[in-house]
Simulated scan of single mutants.
Amino acid sequence: MRKEHKDKLKNKLDETSYEVIVNKGTERPHSGQYNLHFEDGTYTCKSCGAALFTSDSKFDAHCGWPSFDRAIAGDTVKEVFDDSHGMRRTEVVCAQCEGHLGHVFNDGPTETGQRYCINSVSLDFQGK
C-alpha cells in the first residue's frame, strides 16, 4: 500500500480498522458487526469503497468472522502468500487499494470450496 494512501487512512479510519487494513492485523473473533449479518446487499472495502462480496456469497462458518465463498469478480480481490505467525496461508487484499481484508481457505462448504474469512472492520455494507 502506498505511503500517501496510508497517511489518508490514518485520518479516515478508526484505530482498529487502520490496524487491520494497513498493518495486516486481525479483529477478535465474534466481535465484528458483519459476522452474523445476513441482510441483502454488497460488502465494500472500508478503505477505498470497492465492491468486494455480495450477500449471496455469505455464509456462517462458525469461525467468528464474516465468511464468503467467492468475491464479486475475479479481479476485485488479490490473493497473496502469507507465512507470518509461523503459518502458511493465503492473504486476501483489496485489488484496488491493497488493504488487508483477511485470508482465504480451501475448506468452504459450497461448490467453490472456498472460505474467504474477512475482518468486519475492513468492510462497509450497502443494503439493496
Rank of each mutant, 00 (worst) to 15 (best):
I72G: 13
L9K: 10
Y18R: 13
D69R: 07
E27M: 01
A50G: 10
C63L: 09
E27H: 02
E15A: 15
T90C: 09
K3R: 14
F68L: 03
R28K: 13
T90E: 04
G64P: 06
G74E: 14
K8H: 10
V22I: 14
G49N: 05
P29S: 09
D14G: 13
G25V: 12
M87D: 02
R88Y: 12
G74D: 12
K46Q: 12
L36F: 04
D7S: 13
G86D: 02
E15R: 15
S67F: 05
A73L: 06
K24R: 13
R88M: 14
A61I: 02
C45P: 04
G74Y: 01
H5K: 15
N35A: 14
Y43C: 05
V22Y: 03
A73C: 12
P29Q: 11
R88N: 13
Y34K: 09
T26K: 14
K24W: 05
T26W: 09
T54G: 06
R89H: 09
K12P: 02
E15M: 11
R88V: 13
R89S: 08
L13I: 04
T90N: 05
P29T: 10
R28M: 10
C63H: 05
E15S: 15
R88T: 12
V80L: 07
A61V: 02
K3E: 03
D7Y: 04
D60F: 01
T26F: 06
L36I: 08
S47W: 00
V80T: 07
V92D: 00
Q33H: 09
G49S: 09
Q33M: 13
F38Q: 11
L9R: 11
C94V: 08
E39R: 11
N35H: 08
K58E: 07
K46T: 03
H37F: 15
T44R: 15
H37K: 15
H5A: 12
H5W: 12
E4H: 08
T42Q: 07
H5V: 14
R28A: 08
G49V: 03
H62C: 10
N11M: 05
K78L: 05
L36Y: 03
E91N: 05
C45L: 06
I21C: 04
R70I: 00
D75V: 01
Y43N: 07
G86E: 06
H37A: 15
S47T: 02
F68C: 02
A50S: 14
C48V: 07
M87T: 11
H5R: 14
K10V: 01
K3F: 01
N23E: 11
H30C: 10
H62M: 12
I72M: 12
V77E: 04
L36N: 14
Q33W: 00
D75P: 08
R2Q: 15
D56Y: 07
K10H: 06
K78C: 05
G86H: 13
A51Q: 10
T16P: 01
H85R: 09
D40H: 06
C94K: 04
K12E: 04
F38L: 13
L13C: 01
D56V: 00
